[in-house]
Write a protein that binds this DNA or RNA. Sequence first.
DNA 1: CGAACCATTGACCATGATCAATGATTGTGG
DNA 2: CCACAATCATTGATCATGGTCAATGGTTCG
Lengths: 236, 236
Amino acid sequence: MLALAARPEHKPISLRPVMGLRESSRHLRTFDEILSCEMLRKLDPHQHLFHQGDDDNKIYKIEFGLVKLYRILSDGRRQIISLRFAGDILGLESASERHCSAEAITHVKFRSLDQSCAYRRLRDEPAMAPQFVSLLSREIENARSQIAVLNRRSAIEKLSAFILELHRRQNETDTIRLDLSRSDIADFLGLTIETVSRNLTKLKVKRIIQLPEIHELVILDIDRLETLAAGDGGEW
Amino acid sequence: MLALAARPEHKPISLRPVMGLRESSRHLRTFDEILSCEMLRKLDPHQHLFHQGDDDNKIYKIEFGLVKLYRILSDGRRQIISLRFAGDILGLESASERHCSAEAITHVKFRSLDQSCAYRRLRDEPAMAPQFVSLLSREIENARSQIAVLNRRSAIEKLSAFILELHRRQNETDTIRLDLSRSDIADFLGLTIETVSRNLTKLKVKRIIQLPEIHELVILDIDRLETLAAGDGGEW
DNA sequence: CGAACCATTGACCATGATCAATGATTGTGG
DNA sequence: CCACAATCATTGATCATGGTCAATGGTTCG
């Protein structure tokens, strides 16, 4: 429902041998393989991968941690566009300059690759193209779901869907690490921190969740959470 | 600001000759060229190019008219994701099934091409890849701008930005054909038809726009419209 | 220890949704 | 061609949701 980012599942696109090009065993044929040869680098919380306006042209893969993609609007407000978890890729899109900033929320480990380098690979191995298209398509789908969720849904619906998506992204365990600050959650869901806080309290009072630590959330009643997220909350 | 769809400007991506592949003059090297060989077809208002859930795998180019891309949410509401004008391309993204429906608003003329066919072209002419990536990237940028605009902006800001974008898309003429119904505008901006109607009236009363016909809008004061769209509306 | 930051809670208010009635426009069949 | 239905748009009255302003409590860091 609420698409935080591309799903972790990799459906490896079928890679038929290409007419007119020898199959070469020294070619790596998935971006994951290519990226995994790159150096592993680190980022502390609040450090950036890149800023809005940079002419950064790299593709990043998050190996560990959590990254937020956000945009500063003309009136100074911040909109978080997407969250990227371990296993996610970002920065695939081509543009003269970055339209978003990418900032580490937790400690992050990542690898990166020049887009130009990816294009070179693509030239040598055109069968990789559908894989590239598929990754970009997931990005499109991600953004479009976000549009659908953000508009016309109440604060409690957004928040419930958000918690459920975190849950899914953390292997369905009921105890969820809430790495984001209230302000990050607010900027992601298009709410104020007060509204986020109030609605978390509501969920707590209704015994749907628990908040043992400020950055730890326990789901008590996932069914009711799903009902709320779907908007059939009715009167609760 | 409010991204209705990809801009009409074509920045033709530089197409260097590909190492190891002969330059062949019989290869068409842009999607526009390839698509323009396809048959021109027609659609009446309210007819669909494809529906949410279809396993349609075509790429469409709108040659004339206006198409809306929308999605039906779980609670039955409709969210218009994007509007496509003459010159725009849609359906590039790959997926097992369509996540959106595409419906003609006006009479529409279009051409289409199988995605698989595009991929074959891509294999023969890998230098076309950056162009493909660029089109998909524009789609991503389009959706992300939409996220930023829809969240946290007032009805009057959304509506002003919307009118300005229509204006830009119609060669900056001050008399704008308003092909969409109020209900389409509402579903695009995430408002109700009543709110759209009321705010159009407000703009009319303030002498910023005129509405001689129900589907015709005249911009009287574009500066004030831009101020409103930017959110510095203040007290008006 | 105090400063800075983050989160929670309360009181109040504004924006836009909902419900409802009326007009206008379009389309259809007698 | 007109009459009636159906759809679409406008306008009003009311209400609920969530934003704003403000005060307080908790946590972390230097």
